[in-house]
């Protein structure tokens, strides 16, 4: 299990970032999820996707316990303008553009943000996303519709990104 975790650790961390939208909280969550995965490795069914199994662990940890603790400690309420995200790469223009897109997605309400992440970043099908989040497929669709409508509107109004398509 440890080798498996190493393999997809960056993607797990990224999912934690999408869940928490906060670097320290994402790291805490990521660590907690890895520990939990190692502890319950015997429950993992060989032949299934280890990454998705640990993603589920992370998501459950976040919604069941850590999220409430994080909010209690004053975290999780980071104003979007102060949301600290790593600035990737060295190409300033690509950086700026990626940063804008990340910011726009991270600004979505939690349910929409996580659904967009799973479907468009991690490539979950609607059915897989619905199972992962324990929601009906119709809810996946309505979250995506709401998110797309917001992102498309930003695309239309953003001056800086006017020439680019989101």
């Amino acid at each position: 299990m440890k080798e498996l975790l190493e393999g997809f650790y960056p993607r797990l961390w990224r999912y934690c970032l999408a869940l928490t939208r906060d670097l320290p909280a994402a790291e805490d969550l990521c660590q907690a999820a890895c520990l939990k995965a190692l502890e319950s490795a015997h429950q993992f069914q060989a032949g299934t996707h280890a990454d998705r199994w640990v993603f589920s662990i992370a998501k459950n940890l976040w919604y069941n316990t850590l999220r409430a603790e994080n909010v209690r400690r004053g975290g999780g309420l980071v104003p979007s303008d102060e949301l600290a995200l790593p600035a990737p790469g060295t190409d300033a223009e690509t950086n700026f553009f990626h940063a804008e897109v990340l910011k726009a997605v991270m600004d979505l309400p939690e349910a929409q943000r996580v659904t967009v992440f799973l479907v468009y970043v991690e490539g979950f099908s609607y059915k897989e996303a619905a199972e992962h989040l324990h929601i009906p497929i119709g809810t996946v669709m309505s979250r995506l519709a709401a998110a797309r409508s917001k992102l498309a509107a930003l695309k239309a109004t953003s001056g800086a990104a006017k020439q680019r398509t989101l």
Binding site: R14, P88, L102, V105, A145, R148, L166
Partner: peptide, 15 residues
């Protein structure tokens, strides 16, 4: 409702 989902993916991939 149209967005470029590839760009969303590449923005997150850059993380």
């Amino acid at each position: 409702l149209t967005i470029d989902t590839d760009t969303v993916k590449s923005a997150f991939d850059s993380l």
